[in-house]
């Protein structure tokens, strides 16, 4: 292919060809197979390079995050597997005994590791479905979807906006608070939850429970325990709260 053709491709893609030449160019694409194939490859390469260099940083961030999650996932599973089938062949009794002790100690160690409760053991709220209240439908739907997809930054923005026009909506406040716990914006989250707790809505107990979880995530065990103790017996999360208290003690 001649250099002139590539210069032509570039001008065409940049919309810089004069009108008469565009028609001529497009006609040539239809009739000249070699020309048209070279053009398609040129166009694909342009798109590839554009994407490659324009999004270099976002792509790199994605890859780093992916690698992290991937190695966590795989190291977890290898440990589990090796514990299930220890590779012991010609070991005599004593070696077995020593191995058993090591496994036992390791087991106890792992058990203790895993039995320390963390916030992520409890943030298993299911998909939410918000009641429709009129003019803010689209925004509501957007916030709801963001929340359900665990895109909490977007959910938070949505809930904050909705609350501007509907400032007494306790349900929205609760979900906004949960989004903020997820985002580690504890001040906002705790403020909202305290507000719901001191009120008399149906979400009062939920707010108490999540306030406790927020403290758990902030590693404030004392505060977490204190709040859990205030949860009345008829609360939905009473049993879970009791179990959590046992583990924390």
């Amino acid at each position: 292919m001649e250099d002139q053709n590539y210069i032509l491709f570039e001008a065409y893609l940049a919309n810089e060809l004069p009108k008469e030449e565009v028609a001529e160019f497009e006609n040539r694409l239809k009739t000249d197979a070699e020309f048209s194939q070279a053009f398609n490859t040129y166009k694909e390469l342009s798109a590839f390079l554009q994407h490659e260099f324009e999004n270099e940083e976002t792509s790199a961030a994605f890859k780093t995050n992916l690698k992290k999650i991937s190695s966590e996932h795989f190291s977890k599973n290898t440990v589990a597997e090796e514990m299930v089938k220890p590779k012991a062949r010609k070991l005599n009794f004593y070696k077995y005994a020593i191995a058993a002790c090591v496994v036992l100690l390791f087991g106890i160690f792992m058990f203790n590791q895993f039995s320390t409760p963390t916030y992520s053991d409890y943030n298993d709220y299911g998909a939410i479905s918000l009641s429709v209240r009129g003019e803010n439908d689209a925004l509501l739907k957007k916030a709801e979807t963001a929340f359900n997809n665990k895109n909490f930054a977007e959910a938070e923005a949505g809930f904050a906006k909705l609350l501007n026009s509907d400032s007494n909506n306790t349900e929205l406040k609760l979900y906004r608070a949960i989004s903020n716990i997820e985002l580690n914006h504890f001040e906002t989250a705790d403020g909202l939850l305290e507000e719901i707790r001191s009120g008399n809505s149906a979400y009062k107990n939920k707010a108490t429970w999540y306030l406790a979880l927020s403290k758990l995530k902030q590693k404030e065990t004392e505060a977490c325990l204190e709040i859990l103790q205030t949860l009345p017996e008829d609360a939905d999360d009473f049993n879970r709260a009791q179990k959590l208290m046992d583990k924390l003690d």
């Binding site: 292919m1 590539y6 491709f9 001008a11 390469l45």
Partner: peptide, 17 residues
């Protein structure tokens, strides 16, 4: 610069094809 860009992508096109 403009001409160089076309020719570089052109070169790449040839390598790929």
């Amino acid at each position: 610069a403009r001409k160089k860009k076309s020719l570089c992508i052109g070169k790449l096109t040839e390598l790929v094809q």
